[in-house]
Amino acid sequence: MAVLAASGDTWGISGPDFLMLYAVLAGAALLVTYLLRRSVLSGGGERGDNNLTPEKVAYLSGGPGLAITTALGALRSHGAIGTTGKRTLTATGTQPAGATTLDTAVYNAVANNQASSARELATNASVRSALDTIGDQLRRSRLLVGQGTRTALRWATIPVIGVLVLGWFRWDAGRNAGRPVLYLGLGMAGLALVTVVLLLRAPRRTRRGDDALAALRSQYQYLAPTSDPAWNLYGPVGTAMAIGLFGGAALWAADPAFAADAEVLNRNVNSSGWSSSGGSSSSGGSSCSSGSSCSSGSSCSGGSSCGGGGGGCGG
């Protein structure tokens, strides 16, 4: 390396040329990574779920917290539970026929005075167990991103990591030869940042999950709170589905006093699918699955600014 450096350009490639080449390589690597992630996130294959119940829909769109809200909405619509003031959920009737495991867990927790608000229900063991089952079903159906998919998403970052490693060798050689390496360093820093984001972040849902939700939202548009649906007409299942698809705001529309007393979050699940209620910390990953923010790696192309052979260049 020292010989090459002494002869002039590191590896026989000029700084500006290398920066250009590096930018192209980084762009290509990001594209490959994006395509790999896309493929991993498709949620394709045989699975899927043709029987998305309101609570599954809620878990899919907003997470476990919203699933609890659908159970509250359904039980309330049946007249099985009510409130007598702030944080005072109480049983007002018998458990309805056809109650799901989650409905039953929520009803029992309320009836046995183990929980008096939506927040307390979230920590109840039976409720948690029912929620975990729903989550597992959704992951098995490849609607939610599971551990396997998460690992595959990390592996998809390999091309970008390869480009980073190459950049590190060049940066090291250039620095040892006393060549300017600032722009390469900055470009690599940007790419490293993107890599960290790609490694840490994954969307909650697969594309199949997104598509399923979008289709259901379209099918049940009449249940959106903005459509002012006749809640009594659509009954417990309709109310629960409205909450699952459109968020806790649906329960606030259907039964504001109950929703307030039960401390249900008055939030919409927006159309792009990200819910602010009960979402997990990884829910911000959408920005990367779309590939848009990943293209910030193009900051490497800033090297072109040194085409004139300026001081801080690509080694």
Binding site: S227, D228, P229, A230, L233
Partner: peptide, 10 residues
């Protein structure tokens, strides 16, 4: 009516 649109559709 918008309020019963889902019922009418069915």
């Amino acid at each position: 009516r918008p309020e019963i649109a889902g019922f009418v559709a069915d």
